[in-house]
Write a protein that binds this DNA or RNA. Sequence first.
DNA 1: ATGGCTAACGCGGTTAGA
Length: 258
Amino acid sequence: MKIATWNVNSLKVRQQHVMDWLQQSQVDVLCLQELKLPNEKFPCAEFEAAGFKCWFAGQKTYNGVGILVRKGIAVDETNIVRNIPGFEDPQQRVIAATVEDMRIVSAYFPNGQAVGSEKFAYKMRWLDALHDWLGAEMKIHPKLALLGDYNIAPDDRDVHDPKAWEGQNLVSPEERAHFVRLVELGLTDAFRQFEQPEKLFTWWDYRMLAFRRNAGLRIDHILLSAELAAKCSACEVDKVPRKWEQPSDHAPVVATIG
DNA sequence: ATGGCTAACGCGGTTAGA
């Protein structure tokens, strides 16, 4: 079973990229972020025709998350969760579904804008709420995977220029402490379970020829509970779609379970 | 040098991303 996450930065613009990548990557579950479209505009019929069922929580213009699951794989329709239960939020950033025996969570963490800003304070509140909900969720679903755009680079290895970025939004100690708290729930960073090339990132700014210079950050992650981490045999970043015409600024991340 | 590019909204320039 291959599970993946991809911030597509507008599903309207990236629909064909997602279709092409589903075909090439042969993933079974794809978590999407930054759909940037309302639910009525989600191209469900097109994904259905390509052999995938879809669940999503969209909104106009911003945010929006979804989960695509290859047909033939069992999904429990009765316990889809949208947003963090108990955390009142008009921004659509979380959707969870039970796929076979795995709890799959697709999450678009707040960006935070700048340390100390109102948006950063919202990011901290959101992270607290996510942490508490996941703690409870993992008791019900021991096989849990949290996939998404975390907007946190957990380590200096995940930053192209750690000196320039020191203390900034996305790498600040406060954000990294939240990442550690998620890990301390019993989650493992699938990417770091395996030998990886140096300076492999998942996001590169559209500006400054950042992709060509590999001036990126690793901010998209797959965290696995112990039972899933034990069965995980690979985790890779696929940089190829970032090279396509009119790409998302994020690359997909894939984990192989089993 | 805090910009540089891209997308949404909507039709010009603002907001947001990371």
